[in-house]
Write a protein that binds this DNA or RNA. Structure first.
Lengths: 190, 190
DNA sequence: CAGGTTATGGACTGATCAGTCCATAACGAG
DNA sequence: CTCGTTATGGACTGATCAGTCCATAACCTG
């Protein structure tokens, strides 16, 4: 056969996610990526195509991981309100770790609606997050925690919007306590 | 004396705000700025120093204008809830106008806490917005609209976070109706 | 009208960008 | 051990970047 890769593809993408999350797409140079991923230039192009395709793969994987974290939080057994609060706050990146950022929010802010493939990834991810929130809201209504008149899907969209705001606040330096208090206050409406 | 400028400085900055809001700081080239502002290269450097100082001036002016818009909405005579909802939604950029963006959120996402001067501008702007929200919340408590136990300052921070989320949603393509519904739902907690 | 001053536009610069080329290295199959 | 195949690293390319230089144009004061 042939010479095998010297790097682990999953680890390399995880590193690329960090680089893109820190700098954004445009401002992350291929040299940043090579250094951050610990691979050679030709390996990057051979394994991932080009910077854009690497970014799309990183965005897809980031969204998958983020949804998994939130789903796990939402699956918690306690009251719906507490599970939703936990899902809102999971993986935000504390003030200890100022280098992290959200690839989803970052790509929306950077590209707006200008890139069809980014749109498709973000739209799909948003639909899944909204659905996950909506399902837990529905549970809460059934359990008598929330008002019966509440529209679960609309509540889900509000919670996604709120989470975007929390991510911006976290990236802007807000501490864990401020974020939690903001989440709690907004959740009082459910 | 000397030859006078052929362009209006305020209009040029307003144009620069549009260019930076659309592309972000890094991705806005000096050629984009020159074209968007309708001035020559040397005029840009002569009048504004360099790209970075132009950006800082644009960010300052954008924040001033944004605060003015929100203050005007908050000063509306009706119920506090309606004024706050209006302030949350003002100037978000509808789906008709997909080119606009928020320089404040954009700079937080792009720079995180990495640029001290950007930090200072954004921190000052955030404090003013939070204070404006908090004052109107206080009014609402006094008028019996909101729960007396509500902490106005914490509510103000939540509203700023919510507004950031709404801006991300707007940039991601959300329509005016979705944005309003999300704002209303989150406001039910006050 | 003349002279000092500032604005303007176009050519230019060194640096950096994403992406390619190519010689070489490392592997499995025979 | 040898050969075909794939991975790797370093040099390289044309394009674009932010910012500068300079000759010229336009204005106000005297």
């Amino acid at each position: 056969m042939a010479r095998p890769s010297e790097f682990d593809r999953d680890e390399a993408i995880a590193s690329a996610i960090r680089v893109f999350a820190r700098h954004g797409y445009e401002a992350a140079s291929t040299s940043d990526l090579i250094e951050g991923m610990g691979i050679g230039r030709q390996s990057l192009y051979g394994a991932f195509g080009d910077k854009r395709r690497l970014f799309l793969e990183a965005l897809r994987r980031y969204s998958d991981g983020s949804l998994a974290q939130m789903s796990e939080a939402l699956a918690g057994g306690g009251p719906a309100r507490e599970a939703i609060e936990a899902a809102l706050l999971v993986g935000l990146g504390s003030s200890d770790d100022l280098e992290t950022g959200c690839l989803g929010v970052g790509s929306i802010v950077e590209f707006s609606r200008g890139d069809p493939e980014v749109n498709a990834l973000n739209d799909a991810a948003a639909a899944l997050v909204v659905a996950a929130f909506a399902a837990r809201v529905q549970d809460g209504i059934a359990a008598g925690e929330f008002a019966p008149a509440l529209d679960p899907h609309a509540a889900g969209r509000m919670l996604l919007t709120l989470r975007s705001g929390l991510k911006v606040a976290a990236r802007g330096g807000a501490g864990q306590d401020e974020l939690r208090e903001a989440a709690r206050l907004a959740l009082r409406g459910l």
